[in-house]
């Protein structure tokens, strides 16, 4: 096995165990920290895919902002978080559904691995940022989805501020 495969296997092991620990941890702050480890592992997987831009975006957007918002929300709602069981009564059914999905997908992929012809790596170290940037502002390319995404982000921001805003007379 090559060095890249070892890097991938170790990263995948760390990512999956961090995800399991995230689901299993009782304290929400610990779950958030395990989620950070899992997201970091996904960023390393992006690096092995030569998607360097998305590895950086993963660090900036997920670990940099989404995780910070999650930690803030955990701290704002701390009082009710620790009491009671952490799983609902349907946890066994949920485990069954997730296990069946995982087993079916893995079975398909392993059969695919056995039967299919392996892809050949061309070894082209390509630059992925410049074509992406050009395509996102190209009217022939993805300019319209890009603008729609920015409008969606603006709507989500305004909606989030409106929902979380404390009106007088409501609340505690």
């Amino acid at each position: 096995m090559s060095a890249l495969q070892w890097v991938f296997l170790v990263t995948a092991l760390i990512t999956v165990s961090a995800a399991v620990m995230m689901v299993a941890s009782r304290r929400m702050m610990h779950a958030a920290l395990w989620l950070a480890v899992a997201l970091l592992g996904v960023a390393v997987v992006f690096v092995t895919l030569e998607a360097s831009f998305f590895a950086v975006v993963q660090l900036l957007v997920y670990i940099g902002s989404i995780l910070i918002i999650i930690v803030f929300a955990i701290m704002l709602t701390q009082r009710s978080t620790e009491a009671g069981p952490r799983l609902n009564p349907f946890a066994w059914g949920a485990a069954g559904v997730a296990g069946v999905v995982w087993a079916a997908l893995t079975y398909i992929f392993i059969r695919w691995l056995m039967s299919g012809t392996p892809l050949q790596e061309l070894g082209a170290s390509f630059d992925d940022v410049v074509p992406l940037g050009k395509a996102l502002v190209d009217a022939e390319g993805f300019a319209v989805p890009f603008e729609v995404a920015s409008v969606l982000l603006l709507a989500a921001l305004i909606g989030a501020v409106y929902i979380a805003f404390e009106r007088r007379g409501e609340g505690s």
Partner: peptide
């Protein structure tokens, strides 16, 4: 698929 199933369980 593994990460997706763990997320689904969560």
């Amino acid at each position: 698929a593994t990460l997706f199933s763990i997320g689904l369980f969560a």
